[in-house]
Design a protein around this nucleic acid. Structure first.
Length: 623
DNA sequence: CTACCGACGGTTTTT
DNA sequence: CCGTCGGTAG
């Protein structure tokens, strides 16, 4: 298809700037505010590149996201838009991509960075710098350079940009000497290496730099690279990107929004777009349409956006208002009990009168959601509405990790299959696929059909137990125990690599048990229990940071006060960006709450004045 | 044992 | 900004 004949698929229209960005032949960065449709833009560009054969049939697009959710969403959108070419769209997290390179090519690592045999991932490494004062004493000429090395986020900022030497080190600068000392402390001659994701990133960069053939293969495979949420790129990720794709012919498309850069405190680059523009001679595009929020909402967005960037042009809402209420309000309460009751009562009435599911509403907080959870959960529960906090600890696991765990999902699927008598087609397909995978080698037809007969018999047995026992604590323990002993621990461990550590397997089962027991009260049967365990139909409670990239009909931002926003003074600009992210998650309404008892508002007067500029009303909720 | 003082933490993802 | 924790004086 000729480029002029291409039309967007599955959507009505694209804004003019999106057309320009989509057809741009070189590298580009697309600044796209909240609701601009960044995922849709990338999906359309993928279809354009495939349909016009600018990405020829033997080549692929590499799409890099930060979170697994985002990588999965993008893959799903591309799958919907361009089903014939999805196998040529590799949507991965940054860490999955770099780890994959290390796993495939670790024999190409030059000494002394070679990894023999297995290695362990250390998730929580201490970010402590090496003894910088000691190093400075040994290199007196570099004393000033050593003094300038950042102590906090040392690993992200310093190690993350350090290019490991090929053959003997000739570290000259203080940063190189400090990074090398840091590596030597944790990459000794031990049998099993322990490496963090920053280390894997640096090892992947080394593999590509030391082996031109591998780099060439990557450049040939991927003439196009997409990067999502570019504003929060870390030093290591950017350094990797530049090292691998920086001087080649690869066309890199970065999308993001500087106004939503909220990871600076965690050591993300503070001028990723400027560096990218320079290193990749990238053209800048700006999208202005907003497919998420009503025009009443975007008017308020603009006031905050202008505080962050005076040149910003207002977004043009493509969405009609569907509520009568004010788009943005501040609700005042006396104390935390008053707040929890008022919020729960309002959600209960608004869901009832509108027919909207509770999961179209979100509760956001600047931090420490577990402290807010109890009151809200109890008040909502009284009104028959569940709440889900992904940060909640279930046993030794975070709910978020439990619900993402493949083995835990497999157990829930099996429960569903038994509860629904095979009526849940998706769960059945997944369980059936799982059983086929649980054989050591490739299984023949006879073996497979035997396993499926055995699965049928087990499901029938489990089903009989469930029918005679309503879901309660002992029945839950019994059912999960039956599932584990039916599958068998060795088979579970070979099918789910994460469960190879026996203690982790036990933790996962215990956590799923705890989760099911927690939500069992009021569950109508086993299928409903599984829904509740996954938090289906529940009002989510989360930090603003976690809500980045998500959207809800109505958003309630809890605690617009000096207590929740204590860090405002440390970096007011980043705090306003966080405020902007929270504000802009909503399609129709954002409600801020303030309790006299929780804290003052002097420190964040700037935020209240921004709201005052659009005459935002202050009130008690009407119910 | 208690009362007081100062230091400290808090927003995060990734196989 | 303020709750928590560890140390110390009384």
């Amino acid at each position: 298809m000729a480029p002029v004949d291409w039309r967007p698929v599955g959507i009505d229209q694209l804004e003019p700037n999106a057309w320009n960005a989509l057809r741009h032949e070189g590298s580009s960065f697309v600044v796209a505010g909240p609701g601009a449709g960044k995922t849709e833009f990338l999906a359309q560009r993928a279809d354009y590149l495939f349909s016009t054969r600018q990405c020829p049939p033997s080549r692929s697009i590499l799409a890099i996201s930060f979170k697994r959710d985002a990588a999965r969403n993008l893959a799903a959108r591309v799958g919907a838009r361009t089903p014939d070419s999805t196998h040529r769209f590799d949507s991965l997290t940054f860490d999955a991509f770099t780890k994959g390179l290390v796993d495939r090519f670790r024999s190409a690592l030059p000494e002394p960075w070679r990894i023999e045999g297995d290695y362990e991932i250390s998730l929580r490494e201490s970010g402590e710098p090496p003894d910088l004062d000691g190093l400075a004493a040994r290199h007196p000429k570099l004393a000033a350079e050593f003094a300038a090395i950042p102590r906090d986020n040392f690993v992200n900022k310093v190690v993350g940009t350090y290019a490991l030497p090929i053959g003997g080190s000739n570290a000259k600068s203080a940063r190189e000497l400090a990074s090398l000392a840091w590596w030597n402390q944790r990459f000794g001659s031990t049998e099993t290496k322990r490496v963090s994701f920053v280390m894997l990133n640096r090892l992947a960069e080394l593999i590509v730099r030391a082996n031109p053939a591998i780099r060439r293969a990557l450049l040939v495979t991927y003439p196009f690279v997409f990067i999502d949420e570019f504003q929060d790129t870390t030093f290591a990720q950017y350094s990797f990107l530049r090292s691998v794709f920086g001087s080649g012919r690869t066309v890199v498309t970065a999308v993001g929004d500087d106004k939503q850069r909220i990871m600076g405190w965690a050591g993300a680059l503070d001028n990723a777009f400027a560096e990218f523009q320079n290193d990749f001679t990238a053209q800048r595009f700006e999208l202005n349409w907003n497919f998420r929020s009503s025009s009443a909402m975007t008017r308020v967005h603009h006031v905050v956006a202008k505080a962050l960037n005076d040149d910003v042009s207002p977004a043009v809402s493509q969405v009609d208002a569907d509520v009568e209420d004010d788009a943005v309000v501040v609700w005042h309460f006396d104390d935390l009990d008053d707040e929890a009751r008022g919020v729960a009562q309002w959600i209960s009435e608004d869901t009832a009168s509108s027919g909207r599911s509770p999961d179209r509403y979100a509760l956001l907080a600047r931090q420490k959601t577990v402290d807010l959870q109890q009151r809200l959960e109890a008040e909502l529960a009284q009104r028959g509405i569940p709440l889900r906090n992904d940060d909640e600890e279930v046993g030794t696991v975070r709910l978020q990790d439990l619900l993402a765990d493949e083995f835990a999902k497999g157990m829930l699927d099996l429960l569903r299959v038994a509860a629904s008598y095979g009526g849940n087609g998706d769960a059945w397909m997944r369980t059936s696929g799982l059983i086929s995978r649980m054989h050591d080698g490739p299984a023949d037809d006879e073996t497979l059909s035997r396993s499926h007969r055995s699965l049928d018999a087990f499901v029938a047995r489990l089903r009989r137990c469930m029918l005679s026992n309503p879901p309660d604590s002992p029945a839950i323990g019994q059912a999960l125990g039956d599932i584990v002993s039916y599958l068998g621990i060795p088979a579970i461990q070979s099918a789910f690599p994460a469960q190879r550590q026996r203690s982790y397997l036990e933790d996962t089962v215990a956590a799923l048990t705890a989760r099911l027991e927690k939500v069992v009260g009021g569950a109508e049967g086993w299928e409903d229990l599984c829904d509740r365990a996954e938090g289906r139909g529940a009002v989510p409670l989360m930090t603003i940071h976690k809500s980045k990239g998500l959207e809800y009909h109505t958003v309630i931002v809890l605690g617009l006060d000096d207590r929740q926003w204590w860090s405002f003074g440390k970096d007011p600009i980043e705090a306003i960006r966080t405020f902007f992210v929270g504000l802009s998650r909503a399609e129709q309404r954002t409600i801020f709450t303030h309790c006299t008892a929780r804290g003052g508002r002097k420190g964040i007067e700037a935020l209240y004045s921004l709201l005052a500029e659009t005459n935002v009303a202050h009130m008690r909720p009407q119910s």
